[in-house]
Structures are given as structure tokens and as C-alpha cells.
Amino acid sequence: MANSPSGDSVTERVVRVLETFDTDRTVQTVAQIGRRAHLPPSTAQRIVAELTASGLLERDDDGRVRLGLRLWELALRGSRALRLRQAALPHMERVQARVREHTQLAVLEQDEALFLERLSHPQAGANITRIAGRLPLHASSAGLVLLAHAPEAVRERVLAAPLRALTPETTTDAATLRGMLAGIRREGHVVAAGSIESVSTGVAVPVRDGARGEVIAALAVVLPRDAPTAGAVEELRRAAAGVSPAVSAPHP
């Protein structure tokens, strides 16, 4: 790919354009995209026009831009995330039927917990998680499980970085976190009270590839702060055990 005068490639600029969209910002003007992607107006206009012509972006009647259906279509073709979600969903539904709060599935992606699915009861308590949303590994219960079982290089990189406190109870001390992560590996689950929202407790367990045994995801529930957690841990463990054989099966 040809480089711009600033040295970034066409691919890098396209990725920056696409990354300006998130769950809170689904529709933008070309000018907003250009500013957020740090692109000159003419470059932003050209890239948006090319992505729109290919169906990766779409324009509404007012000329505003959103992600296109073709991007969604391509993302789902042969997606590892889609296969994992499909394998986990029936087991998540059984957990949700018993817990009746929030049940969610997350994977490790670029040093964050990326949430692939979330089931919620209409009267459930607070939960900031969104499908396709991200949370810090050191704060979320699913993230802590993923961090505990991440490759050592990933774990050290995360622990060496500044750790942001989302609430007064978020653990931000690297040494304390190391002890927590060792406990998660030993106990096979985590209970994180108040680390994302002070009114909630996150409970999570690892999901393993049934063939290789490596942790590929985390199943979690979000409960009211003072709710009992032992039953949720057992429900999650049963669900994770049910998911593992399905995600280890070969795919054509």
C-alpha cells in the first residue's frame, strides 16, 4: 500500500476511519470522521467515498455516514467469534434463565476484554457492558479471567501499564493484581465486587478449548452487589464445560 506524506499506509488510514465508529457514535459526518481519524478533509472525503462505493460504509439521506451491511457480512464469514458465540449461546441462555440478571461472553482482544454476547433480564441491575464493547482486563470479572490465563507477555504488558480506576474498588496495584490472577488460576473463577460499578458484582469463569485446554474466552454474570455468588459460579462452570467440546470441534 502506498504511504501518505505522514508515512502511514492506505490500510492504516482506512482502519482509522472505521475505528471512528463505536457503540455510542454510529452515525457521523465526513468532517467528523476526518477529525477523529486525523486525516486531511480531502483524504477523508476520498476514503469515505471509496468505502461507500464498496458497501463497507453507507450514507443516509442527509449525507451522514454509518457502517455498511457489507462490512458486517464480511466480518461474519468464517468468524471465530461467531462460532464461539453460537456454541456458547444455548449454555448462556440456561445460565440466564436461572440468574435472571446479566450473562455475557468475552474474549481477549488487543489487551482488552471484547464482549461478543450479552443476555439481560428487563429488570436486571446496572451493567455498562455492550455487545462489541470493551472493558479493561484489570477491572472487569471477565477481563480478570482472561488476563489470568493470557500469555505471560500480555500479562506483563498490561500490568506494566498505568491501570485506571473505574471505581474506588478497582484494583490498580500491579503486585496486588498478580496475587489475584494467581488465585483465579488456582480457584478457576473470580468474584469482583464493585470494580466496574460500585452497585454490581461480576463473577466469571474461563472457557477452554476442549482439545487443547487453552482458555479462549470468559463467561460472566453481573449481579447486584450483595447477591449470593456461589450458585452463579456453579452455573457458569457447568456452562463453560458445555461450551468447550463445541469450540474444539474441527470446522470445515
Rank of each mutant, 00 (worst) to 15 (best):
A182F: 00
V221T: 10
R66N: 02
L71S: 09
E152T: 08
L18R: 08
L135G: 05
P40F: 06
Q45I: 01
V17N: 10
V247R: 05
I196R: 03
G143K: 08
E152A: 10
T129N: 08
P41L: 01
D111L: 11
V15A: 13
N3S: 10
L135W: 04
A161T: 12
D22S: 12
L166N: 06
T201K: 05
L144N: 07
A81I: 00
T176K: 13
Q123A: 15
I196H: 00
A148I: 01
A37S: 09
T129A: 14
R36W: 09
P41C: 01
R36A: 14
R185N: 02
H189T: 01
V10F: 11
D173W: 02
R186W: 00
L236Q: 02
A232S: 13
T129L: 06
V65H: 07
L89G: 00
A87Q: 08
G55E: 10
V30E: 14
R130D: 05
L135A: 14
E152K: 00
R80A: 10
L84Q: 10
L67F: 01
R98L: 12
Q96D: 05
S244N: 04
Q104F: 12
H121P: 03
A174L: 12
A220Q: 13
R186P: 02
L223F: 11
E235R: 07
P40H: 15
R35Y: 04
V203Y: 05
G125W: 10
Q45C: 04
R25E: 12
E73G: 03
L114Q: 12
